[in-house]
């Protein structure tokens, strides 16, 4: 069984934790040993969130080793740009084209990086950058909060596993009133054309 290390980066409240839970559960269903770890800072909302999901024959550490990530899922551009250190030659970075400026940028004391800058940071570390309009797609479906699940849809095509397995897990983890939205968001992601 192939080792797969997936790093997710976003901002509190963006659904990064849910996406990590879905990925870990799918891995377990596909017969992998799985570990998952996340760090969310002190604030309830608005802080950096980083989640590690690892699939493999036997997984020891719940943390991905720097230079070993196979995928980076960036829920927010600036947060994605923080982690070139985890990438290696051939890593794939799926980036949601979405900005949440941090306080220093709002106060005009720092500059938010451009798409080009984000891309060049991740490329320099060996990553292949793929932009996904996750938030835009989710907004059209009725709720921008489902952006992460759009990204998962795109990733699911790369990771494999039957569509039903993914949908089963989403069904078991997403509360009833948001289920239809998330299923649609996931399927929209699967339709995404990775050039």
């Amino acid at each position: 069984m192939k080792k797969t290390d997936i790093l997710m980066a976003g901002v509190g409240g963006q659904g990064t934790i849910l996406a990590g839970n879905i990925l870990a559960q799918v891995g377990l269903k596909l017969g992998y040993d799985v570990k998952k770890s996340e760090v969310h800072g002190m604030a309830q909302r608005g802080g950096t969130v980083e989640s590690h999901v690892r699939w493999g024959e036997k997984v020891y550490a719940p943390l991905i080793e720097e230079g070993h990530a196979d995928y980076l899922l960036g829920f927010e551009m600036l947060e994605a740009a923080r982690w070139p250190i985890y990438l290696q030659e051939g890593s794939i970075a799926l980036l949601n084209r979405y900005r949440i400026p941090p306080p220093s940028v709002n106060l005009g004391k720092a500059k938010y990086p451009s798409e080009k800058e984000v891309e060049s940071i991740l490329k320099a570390a060996g990553g292949r950058v793929i932009w996904v309009d996750g938030t835009g797609t989710a907004e059209k479906l009725g709720n921008p909060a489902a952006a992460g699940v759009v990204l998962l849809g795109v990733l699911s095509k790369m990771l494999g596993g039957a569509e039903e397995v993914w949908l089963d897990v989403i069904g078991s983890l997403v509360p009833g009133k948001f289920l239809e939205l998330n299923e649609k968001a996931f399927l929209a992601g699967r339709e995404f054309n990775v050039a």
Binding site: A43, G47, W83, P103, S104, L122
Partner: peptide
């Protein structure tokens, strides 16, 4: 790249 990333604006809890 890691050095550039370290210079990005931080997102402290607020």
């Amino acid at each position: 790249a890691a050095a550039t990333a370290a210079e990005l604006p931080i997102r402290p809890p607020i």
